[in-house]
Amino acid sequence: MREIVFDTETTGLSPQDGHRLVEIGCVEIFNRVQTGRSFHAYINPERDMPREAEAVHGLSMTFLSDKPCFHAVVDDLIEFLGDSPLVAHNATFDFAFLNWELSQCGHVPISLARMVDTLAMARTRHPGAKHSLDALCTRYGIDRSQRIKHGALLDAELLAQVYVELCGGRQIGLILAETPAAGMQLAESAMSMARAPRPVRPPRPHAASPEELARHATFIQKLVDPLWAQFPAA
């Protein structure tokens, strides 16, 4: 099954307050394995950047001033997303901004039925624990050493690994294939090999040779006060 794990960076907390997207990063996974395909864009928000937001993601208006506006990247983004489920951490936040930007471009908002929220999954699986992306990476042993500031593409890549762990992790023996049909063929082949009769081999001799027995007896005689000497044979 194809899914898209994504993350956004913004100028603030709510599009209703005039805040905008400034970065979006998407990672494609198939059967919970990253395919290597991704979508990433920095976006000119056409407004100022609050200092509080810049402190979180490090994106200044000087950096974003020559980047495309959302309407310039929206077609490529929609093509990449397709009709796949969309996975995000605290997904209602990301969906709110994404759908607001889509509506401003005349596009139909993405249905919330496609939303998969890893924050809700983490709260269910680990009640009472910390559920930030950093905390979940630490819990699952995922390397986040490059995450100095928030970045949409890097965070999406980390979240993809977290999502796999929240879904149960990568199982030993999981068959990876480009298509489900190919996976079934590999599975059937593996089962056929397991059912195939194995040739019967005669047992190999493991008895010690007379020379080995003699060397062993000589070695035993050199032992001082061996334990078994304290218990004479019945």
Rank of each mutant, 00 (worst) to 15 (best):
H107Y: 15
V116T: 10
E46A: 14
D94Q: 07
R37M: 10
C167A: 10
H89M: 09
L136K: 07
E3K: 13
T92H: 13
D134L: 07
R204V: 13
A177Y: 01
A181F: 09
I43R: 05
F6D: 05
P127Q: 02
Y42C: 07
A187Y: 11
V87K: 08
V33M: 09
V27E: 14
A208T: 10
F219C: 12
M121T: 00
R2K: 14
A214F: 10
P197C: 05
F80S: 01
R201T: 13
K67Q: 13
P50T: 03
P127A: 04
R47D: 04
E54G: 02
L223V: 13
T118R: 07
L176F: 03
H71I: 04
R204Q: 14
P197D: 10
A234W: 08
P210F: 06
A91G: 05
D94V: 06
D143N: 09
A88C: 11
V73Q: 02
L153N: 00
C105A: 09
N31F: 06
I4S: 06
P68H: 00
R37V: 04
G25W: 00
Q146A: 13
A91I: 05
E54R: 11
F30Q: 06
E165Q: 13
M61R: 15
H206V: 15
A196K: 12
D76L: 06
Q16P: 02
H206E: 15
I24D: 05
R125I: 07
A208M: 15
P232L: 12
P50E: 06
R20W: 01
S65L: 03
R20C: 08
G173E: 00
E9D: 02
H216T: 12
M191P: 00
E79W: 05
P109D: 09
P226T: 04
R144G: 11
D48T: 13
M115W: 15
E23C: 04
L154W: 03
R2I: 13
R215H: 11
C69F: 08
Q185V: 12
T92R: 14
T10V: 11
E101P: 05
L64Y: 05
D143G: 01
C167T: 02
G82A: 15
D134E: 15
H131P: 03
H40S: 11
L64E: 03
K67L: 04
A120Y: 01
V33S: 07
R195H: 07
L213R: 15
H131R: 01
V200A: 11
L112Q: 14
A91K: 07
P68R: 02
T10G: 10
R114M: 09
L98E: 12
F30W: 01
F219G: 08
S103H: 09
P15T: 05
I172Q: 10
V5G: 03
P85G: 09
G141F: 04
P210Y: 04
V22Q: 10
R215I: 00
D66P: 01
L136T: 07
P197W: 10
M61P: 05
F63W: 04
A233H: 12
L136E: 03
M191F: 13
T62K: 15
I29W: 01
Q161T: 11
C69H: 14
D83H: 06
I175L: 15
C69A: 14
I24C: 05
G173M: 02
L77T: 09
A41N: 00
A194M: 13
F93E: 10
S189L: 14
A88I: 08
N44K: 06
L77H: 09
R204I: 10
F70K: 07
I220Y: 06
L59R: 04
H107M: 14
I148E: 07
G36K: 09
E52N: 09
